[in-house]
């Protein structure tokens, strides 16, 4: 059981929780994830670490309400407990030798991009950050990115936040303008990551994408999180979650992530109804 220390609604349907988890906080690094259960009958869901405080022994997660379990998670308040909180899992983001990078976050993926940018910036790398959201209401972590980037480029689909357009538009402008990077690191929805990887391939810029497939144990047992990377089967939980974006079969990943959409939608509606009845 892990206590919730703090909770903050970042925008509609996106919430930050700071969790008391000293063992995880002691070890975790940007790029790694945890698995949690809200209660005895909960699913196990993976969430990538958004921040951590080794001294306090806390780990921060940021999640979007997308299904039954995240809906339940969103009803927990400071002082409440999570049933289980296990990690850190997966491999950390490789930062060795990176001098100039572009970190790209899309939507709630920015929660994962943030600790990566923060670490690279703290290591002294030139860290350009591009963040993109549908609109201003859904924008998160603006101040945090401002404080931990060399240059911050804001994008929104409708132009209400930063420039109008996609993160790929901003990246294309940079690359076409002659910017070069040791690496681009991209975290966000699969179609966005696919588009970024297609673009950077054109320009020959190494790109790392952080994958978030369906998982159960997260420790290298079930094989549910498998992806095809460079024609080989890889397991996101132990081989990833970050992979060379130019080798990932994104179309397959998108299909696999939709496997339980129908079930999830149903479970989500039922959970929402339950909470409504309680109220």
């Amino acid at each position: 059981m892990n206590k919730i220390l703090a909770r903050q609604e970042l925008c509609k349907n996106i919430t930050l929780l700071r969790i008391d988890a000293p063992l995880v906080a002691r070890k975790c690094e940007p790029g790694q994830f945890i698995i949690l259960r809200t209660d005895e009958n909960s699913e196990r869901i993976p969430l990538t670490v958004a921040d951590f405080d080794r001294e306090e022994g806390s780990v921060t997660i940021i999640f979007q309400v997308v299904g039954a379990t995240t809906e339940k998670l969103n009803h927990l308040m400071p002082g409440d407990y999570l049933q289980d909180f296990a990690g850190p899992l997966g491999r950390m983001t490789q930062t060795d030798g990176l001098k100039k990078v572009c970190v790209i976050g899309g939507g709630v993926g920015c929660a994962i991009a943030y600790p990566v940018a923060k670490k690279l910036h703290a290591l002294g790398a030139h860290t350009d950050v591009i963040i993109g959201f549908r609109n201003k209401e859904l924008a998160i972590l603006d101040e945090a990115f401002s404080a931990h980037s060399t240059r911050l480029i804001r994008m929104s689909d409708d132009g209400t936040y930063g420039d109008k357009g996609f993160v790929t538009d901003a990246l294309k402008k940079l690359l076409a303008g002659g910017e070069t990077y040791d690496e681009v690191i991209v975290i966000g929805p699969l179609p966005m990551m696919k588009a970024v990887c297609a673009l950077t391939k054109e320009y020959g810029v190494k790109t790392i994408a952080s994958m978030n497939p369906v998982m159960i144990d997260g420790t290298g047992m079930c094989g549910g999180c498998r992806l095809t990377v460079g024609g080989q089967v890889k397991f996101a939980c132990v081989d990833g979650p970050e992979f060379d974006g130019h080798l990932i079969d994104f179309d397959e990943a998108m299909a696999r992530n939709g496997q339980y959409r129908e079930f999830e939608r149903h479970a989500y509606e039922e959970t929402c109804n339950l909470f409504r009845e309680v109220k």
């Binding site: 196990r44 159960i216 079930c222």
Partner: peptide, 29 residues
């Protein structure tokens, strides 16, 4: 092998047993 509907036995059994997917009110699909 990565089509939707292909499981490893580990995944199928874990969903069924550990996560109790065989029970009607299970949250794991």
């Amino acid at each position: 092998e990565n089509l939707k509907g292909v499981y490893s036995a580990n995944e199928f059994l874990t969903r069924t047993n550990l996560m109790k997917a065989y029970q009607p009110d299970a949250t794991t699909p």
